[in-house]
Design a protein around this nucleic acid. Structure first.
Length: 464
RNA sequence: GGCGACCUGGCGAAGUGGGAACGCAUCGGUCUGCAAAACCGACAUGAACCGGUUCGAUUCCGGUGGUCGCCUCCA
């Protein structure tokens, strides 16, 4: 598999770490409010990446941190009139709950800044010892000019950086804070060799990444808006402290757009993840993400969600068709369908291995879906082939975190009450009492099911 | 001002130096008491515009126009 790296601007081969595991670190949220659908993109992308690697027989370790110490948390807590630690804890729990709704499982580790204070302080001390950082007042700053490679990730030169914060205590406006001394109005702090305070914004990710994955690892990722300064600074901190490469591939997802602008808390054009999942369902949300490339900007709107929902429905219907056919399978094997399965697999893996090309992978799935439907136009395949095709389709869906599309809607899940209504409607139709039949159809709809009349009689499926 | 990205059918969205995937929508058809649903089929001789390289460019290079992102918090 190859992945595009922001550092080189090219696709780079994905190779495991020395221990054979593919270490992946993705920057998680700063917890001062509920996460929005844009925040969910990296969570989905990196969760599915890990899932794909594992389904392909590789070992992967995914780390997504939670930044629970930050200026914004102080501000938000003050506005709410509660202790900042209380707000951070509440928002952390909400973040876990909200992302759980996606049904993609949890990362292997989700470190909190507050749980890694010793690692952070040790790393800062290391940088100070190497003269890459200096204490000033109660603060500690990174000496940017002492790290010649600064700017390599974001492709800019320190000389071009003009709008920097002068900062009274800094030697150079370019320098950034590793440790911020306790200030008035801040209600949480930790002891350090430089006095009470808290970590700067970037140091925690350096510390947590190397704590969980070692000083060098395969993939470091996050939103593309983190390239500068966050990830640039992480490289400076980690490579400065260890003199060794930090992450080998820098993988950045593009932004979601709402009303033609980047979805952003500061602009206010956001849709909360929990609301979106509640309204459209986890599968629709995941399919929405998977149908676009992670490095493309992605518009968010109800129309986009409707599209994704319709696409999911198409896949669900194909699985249902397979299940229905399995109740009454045919004899022979359909050669065209068998060939389509092979083609779909090849196209799927080719797309995924080429910079995580989930849109191509989805296209391969849809091609398989069409091939399944076409096969049913021709006849009814054998039980063995039906099972093989189903296994294959569900297997591909599962690699994208979409196996849920194969689970819901089995006939066994239809309540007896609804089946009874359906039977009565069939009787009414047979008696040509269409008023009664239509009334029963409405009654079934009221139970959340949809009647589908077909050549082989009527069936009910959960309304979607 | 500096750095960078993007501009593909009605809406989204891929890949690609030589047939422009896929989804939605639309249209036609099958099915049907009706409706819906479902399924099948059709659907860009052309890829913002202008040049250049090439036997050949949507794909490479240059320019113009437009959109957006980063440079401050941001997934």
């Amino acid at each position: 598999m190859r992945l595009h790296s922001t550092l080189t601007g090219r696709d780079e081969p994905l190779v495991p770490d020395d221990d054979g595991v593919i270490g992946i670190y993705a920057c998680g949220p700063t917890v001062y409010s509920r996460i929005h659908i844009g925040n969910a993109r990296p969570f989905v992308v990196f969760s599915v990446l890990k899932r794909y690697l594992e389904r392909r027989g590789m070992r992967a370790r995914l780390v997504i941190n939670v930044t629970d110490v930050n200026d914004k948390i102080y501000d938000a807590a003050r506005a709410e009139g509660i202790p900042s630690t209380e707000l951070a804890e509440r928002c952390t729990q909400q973040y876990f709950a909200d992302t759980d709704l996606l049904g993609l499982g949890r990362p292997d580790a989700e470190p909190l800044v507050t749980g890694c204070m010793d690692d952070i302080i040790a790393l800062i001390a290391d940088l100070v010892a190497r003269d890459l950082a200096y204490a000033a007042g109660g603060d500690v700053y990174f000496r940017v000019r002492a790290f010649p490679q600064y700017g390599q990730l974001s492709g800019r030169s320190p000389d071009d950086m003009t709008d920097t914060d002068p900062g009274e205590l800094k030697e150079d406006p370019l320098d950034f804070a590793l440790w911020k001394g306790l200030k008035e109005g801040e209600d949480a702090s930790w002891d350090s060799p430089w006095g009470p305070g808290r970590p700067g914004w970037h140091i925690e990710c350096s510390a947590m990444a190397e704590r969980e994955l070692g000083t060098g690892f395969a993939v470091h990722g996050g939103g593309i808006d983190l390239v500068f300064p966050h990830h640039e600074n992480e490289i400076a901190q980690s490579e400065g402290a260890h003199g060794a490469p930090f992450a080998r591939i820098w993988m950045h997802n593009e932004m979601l757009e709402l009303s033609d602008s980047k979805m952003s808390k500061s602009i206010g054009n956001i849709a909360l993840l929990a609301d979106v999942v509640q309204e459209w369902g986890a599968d629709t949300v995941i399919a929405y993400f998977m149908q676009s490339h992670y490095r493309s900007r992605l518009p968010f709107s109800d129309e986009r969600m409707q599209d994704a929902q319709a696409a999911c429905r198409r896949i669900r219907n194909a699985v249902r068709a397979l299940d229905r056919a399995l109740d009454d399978p045919g004899e022979g094997n359909d050669a065209e369908l068998a060939a389509a399965v092979v083609t779909a697999r090849t196209r799927f893996f080719d797309a995924m291995d080429d910079d995580f090309g989930t849109p191509g992978a989805m296209a391969a799935i849809f091609d398989l879906v069409r091939a399944i439907n076409q096969a049913f136009e021709r006849g009814r395949p054998s039980e063995g082939q039906l099972q093989e095709v189903r296994l294959e389709l569900v297997g591909l869906l599962d690699m994208l975190g979409l196996a849920g599309l194969a689970e819901a809607g089995g006939d066994s899940e239809v309540p007896a009450e609804v089946l009874d209504l359906l039977r009565r409607r069939e009787d009414a139709r047979a008696a040509r009492d269409f008023a009664e039949a239509d009334a029963l159809r409405d009654a079934i709809a009221a139970q959340g099911f949809e009647v589908r009349d077909g050549p082989d009689g009527a069936e009910v499926v959960p309304a979607s």
